[in-house]
Simulated assay, not measured.
Amino acid sequence: MLGTQSGGAPVELSVVPLATCVAHYARGFLECHRLAVERLGVATEFTMADDRPARVASVRLRVTVPPGLDEAGLTAFGAMIDHCGLHGAALLRVRLLPQRPHSPPGSPAVPGVSQ
């Protein structure tokens, strides 16, 4: 946080590479299929463990999918972002929840994405 003396703790910042990796694969898929990347979004939420040592207990990634993908495209998109090896290697429970822009909370995840 620029201009302040606070920021994320190193263990909290460990979530950033995971979101970055998913965004990288998502963008690559969209560019390959000539779909707009401007509306792609990856939001991250995490919870810290209640006990010691300090660690991230769970991570939730919400991927906003630009329009233009049918069901088969969504399945392929989910498979592509599943290539991010960080969520498979992490000792975290990661759930990827791709959503279309303006979709209501809790809408279904993209088929084929790891749960």
Rank of each mutant, 00 (worst) to 15 (best):
R27I: 07
T20S: 15
H24K: 02
L91M: 03
P111V: 04
R27S: 14
G28D: 12
E71I: 13
E45A: 13
A36M: 02
G73A: 14
G73S: 14
G106M: 08
C84G: 05
P53V: 02
T75I: 08
G41S: 12
G28V: 05
L91W: 02
G68P: 12
C84K: 04
R34W: 03
A26V: 07
G106H: 07
P104D: 12
R55F: 04
G28F: 04
R55I: 01
G73Q: 15
A49Q: 05
A19C: 06
M48C: 00
M80L: 01
R39G: 10
R62H: 11
A23G: 14
G41Q: 12
V110H: 08
P17N: 08
L74C: 15
E45H: 04
H83R: 11
V110L: 14
C32L: 12
L96M: 01
A79S: 12
H102L: 10
A36K: 04
P101W: 02
A76E: 14
L97P: 03
P101S: 05
P67V: 09
P66H: 10
G78Q: 11
R34D: 14
H24V: 10
P108F: 01
F29G: 00
L69Y: 13
A26H: 06
G68K: 09
L61W: 08
R95E: 13
P98D: 04
H102K: 07
T20P: 00
P67D: 14
D50E: 15
P101F: 04
P105Q: 03
T64E: 09
R52H: 04
T44Q: 06
G41R: 13
A36G: 04
V65N: 02
T64C: 01
V110C: 15
A89G: 03
V59I: 15
C21A: 06
Y25V: 07
D51H: 10
F46V: 00
V22S: 10
V65W: 03
A54G: 00
